[in-house]
Amino acid sequence: MNEDPAKLAAFEARIARGEKIEPGDWMPAEYRRQLIRMISQHAHSEIVGMLPEGTWIPHAPNLRRKMVLMAKVQDEAGHGQYLYHAAETLGITREEMIDALLSGKAKYSSIFNYPTLSWPDVAWIGWLVDGAAIKNQTMLAQCSYGPYSRAMVRICAEETFHYKQGKEMIVQYMTQGTPRQKALVQDGLNRWWWPTLMMFGPHDSDSPNSAVLMRWGIKTKSNDALRQEFINEEVPEVLALGLTIPDPDLRFNAETGNWEIGPIDWDEFWRVVKGNGPMNAERLAARQKAHEDGRWVREAVAAYAKRTPEIGD
């Protein structure tokens, strides 16, 4: 890094004092680069994240669940917009980011490359996937970059609704459901458990960006620390419902107070990250189609904006 040492020292002192870095303030080029990378990937994840659940909107079991799911999916669209705009304050345009997503160049959270095979998968996404996202996002709400931190505070407040509506459904199916409903819930857990744990990213020992992200207050906790917090909070809750977690090595360590898990299949993780997961191609095609299908709307509003105002308009 060839940054001016005096400026860098002043910047790091500001972060140490807990000040937020705002657009216009000096920042190291690497800080800007890392933030653009993280915020844009995060934005893409919100946008692609609408797809696995969106397919179930027409099949919701009742009107209440349908309204809740529509509200949740709308929220994810909103989260994507908050984040694209937070990234734009760093000098990239939304158009560049959308181009990267539509051309398949951009990364987004691998979890959304798994299929939703039954309605209870919607509930598991709320409980586990939004639950894991909240862990990460609660940490990022403390981030040293003002616009990212504020977007995260706003998002976390909304995510708590996503988490609770999902968990409420699982609790309902497991305490009042039919044997078939319970079996679908267990099947969903079997498929979503490990991909959810992978959401926290590679082990700290394989996470090259972590050190600089922690040093500059972008992240304040490591991948493994967040993953362990999540496991410790959710395992007892899942087990209390009579469900089986698909991990034969899972055990409680009374000395550390941690639930210990078996090995994560990182080959699967990297396969999905590199574009070869079960739904990567379909997700990309769905985004491209949505973009094309919306073209006439964009053309219409652009034409409306250019209109000659009528008398009295």
Binding site: M67, V171, A240
Partner: peptide
């Protein structure tokens, strides 16, 4: 109101 997390009260089995 179903957009508010406060709408979902008791959702923990433990």
């Amino acid at each position: 109101t179903y957009r508010q997390q406060s709408y979902y009260g008791f959702v923990s089995p433990t």
